[in-house]
């Protein structure tokens, strides 16, 4: 069974059709890249899937369950987590506290008015582990707002990961980064996918990253699915060459 199923989703903003009758499925354990020119509707597609905006028509199913009318936080509880194109963190809190909030919510503590020693130790251990995996072990006490762009990104990804999601959606995780930072993030995503078996949807402009990581690629253009297939199929598609890769190469 597919993990995520999108059926004929459309989203209009006034007269603009940002997403136009998009259908797709993502299987468990898959790493799906979504590419397309600026303004193609990639972020809007994530917004529909994650519940930030409601589709004008169509349906979103997660593990066979219709979540179209479900609030974002309820989708999170079902296992859908996301990051944003412009990093969303808690800037005044330390890196460790940013991750701690997520760990505590995942542990079901969000309404807990007092956490005993054992509970706290469990949370601390999880926070340390996530800091380590995200390459942030020596920055736990630093205010997130004071981190480099790349580290803020890593922190945001680790927060999403703390939720133990079944589907992780990353919106341009390497945007605005240098080669070294891009490499670090790509390596992190690969590890999450290969080692942890996490299902990932990835919006990405860096084609090296896309063709290195993706199992399958969906190409959006003007809100429509232009092509869908393996990296090889996409790289050989004339349509995609013309509409997108060609432009990028030119």
């Amino acid at each position: 069974m597919s993990l995520l199923q999108v059926e004929g989703a459309s989203k209009r903003f006034g007269s603009l059709v940002a997403i136009d009758d998009v259908s797709m499925t993502v299987g468990p354990g898959e790493l799906r890249a979504i590419i397309g020119p600026n303004g193609a509707g990639k972020t809007t597609f994530f917004n529909l899937v994650s519940g930030l905006v409601a589709p004008t028509s169509g349906a979103i199913l997660f593990e066979g369950r219709d979540v179209t009318a479900l609030a974002p936080e309820k989708r999170v509880a079902l296992g859908m987590a996301r990051t944003f194109q412009i990093t969303e963190v808690f800037p005044e809190l330390s890196v460790a506290d940013n991750i701690r909030v997520a760990v505590e919510i995942a542990a079901g503590y969000r309404l807990t008015p007092w956490l005993g020693g054992a509970g706290r130790a469990g949370v601390d251990a999880k926070v340390s582990e996530l800091l380590r995996v995200g390459g942030l072990a020596d920055k736990g006490g630093v205010r997130v707002g004071a981190l480099s762009h790349g580290d803020q990104r890593a922190a945001e990804i680790m927060m999403s990961l703390a939720l133990r999601p079944r589907l992780l959606m990353l919106d341009e995780p390497t945007a605005g980064m240098g080669d070294q930072e891009t490499y670090e993030i790509a390596r992190l995503v690969r590890r999450l996918h290969r080692r942890a078996g996490l299902t990932i949807m990835l919006i990405e402009h860096d084609m090296r990253v896309v063709f290195n990581l993706a199992d399958r690629i969906m190409v959006l253009a003007e809100g429509r699915v232009l092509a869908e297939g393996t990296p090889q199929e996409i790289s050989e598609s004339d349509k995609v060459q013309a509409a997108y890769l060609g432009k990028a190469a030119a």
Binding site: E73, F90, E92, I105, R110
Partner: peptide, 16 residues
């Protein structure tokens, strides 16, 4: 405090 800092992030961590 998370809500104060960033309501959107808090919501997408699962806080109603």
């Amino acid at each position: 405090i998370a809500i104060r800092e960033n309501e959107r992030r808090a919501r997408f961590l699962g806080v109603p």
